[in-house]
Amino acid sequence: MSAIVAKVREPLIEGNKSYHDITEDICSPTERLPGIAWLVGLLVSVSVLTFGLVCIFITIWFGIGTWHLNRTIGWGWDITNFVWWIGIGHAGTLISAILLLFRQRWRTGVNRAAEAMTIFAVMCAGLFPLIHMGRIWLGFFIFPYPNTRGPLWVNFNSPLLWDVFAISTYLTVSLLFWYTGLVPDFATIRDRATGFRKKVYNFLSFGWTGAAKHWQRWENVSLVLAGLATPLVLSVHTIVSFDFATSVIPGWHTTIFPPYFVAGAVFSGFIQLYCSTGRNSIGFSAKNLSRIFSGMYCWCFSIKSRYDGTSSGGGTIGILF
């Protein structure tokens, strides 16, 4: 390792590995057949996915009434899940973007997983508002597109519409952030690959050569995107909380919801990240993470518990986390 590391710090990478060793470690999982553990994991995931698809079929075929949702609040796990998944995503963004802004070098151990988790979490989050609709086949009404019905526009006063914009913005920025980070790694794989595989990675890596100018621009873009993503964490979940906070319903109509939602999101997201980075099945082990997480846990918990006690409305929405 050529980088200079203070002696008092615990080294981030143990085992006295060279750059070549690390490249090998990172690239080899993509170049060999997956192991049994990975296959078993995939099988389990696909089974659960299939079950989910059947459930979605039943929901769409018979109607959302099969969920036994009712009055006086017509929402249930659909919107709970939506809020929860958005929260999960936020932790991923926070980890990779804030740590980048604060120049935390150990970030590189988890940022890829965190960003990927963000994107999949946002996709899951988008799924639930869709399937909770009474008439999903008309869900496109929610987008403001030019039409021949007048034209008939969406209702810009509705917090649900703000959600649409918030989520799509968030997805876009997260996707860019994630992909930008991937480009140098794609190039590394491209350099080792042959044949068709090489062509694919060639396209994906956008002609990355590892030139100093590339690295400089890459650093700039990463910083800009991280700077964009960080406030999004606050704004997106704030807007999600507006679904409740701007209503007139007792228990929902409360100003504490925006910070409450953000704190809750980060809280649950870190735990999800902690779980999903136990990547032993592909040969990595997470280190140093538990220390980070315990710190975050304490911070979020203190915010959350502060409002649990005093806000009766908080209890109402507490189920969302």
């Binding site: 018979f62 109607g63 949702l69 017509g74 508002p129 609709m133 009474g134 008439r135 009404f141 319903i249």
Partner: peptide, 24 residues
């Protein structure tokens, strides 16, 4: 025919007079 069934209106009705066609 414009309604997509988000049920937000029913949630936000203080009088709870909105009805949703849960099933067919």
């Amino acid at each position: 025919n414009r309604c997509i069934g988000t049920r937000y209106c029913a949630n936000n009705c203080p009088y709870k007079v909105r009805r949703f066609n849960w099933l067919d």
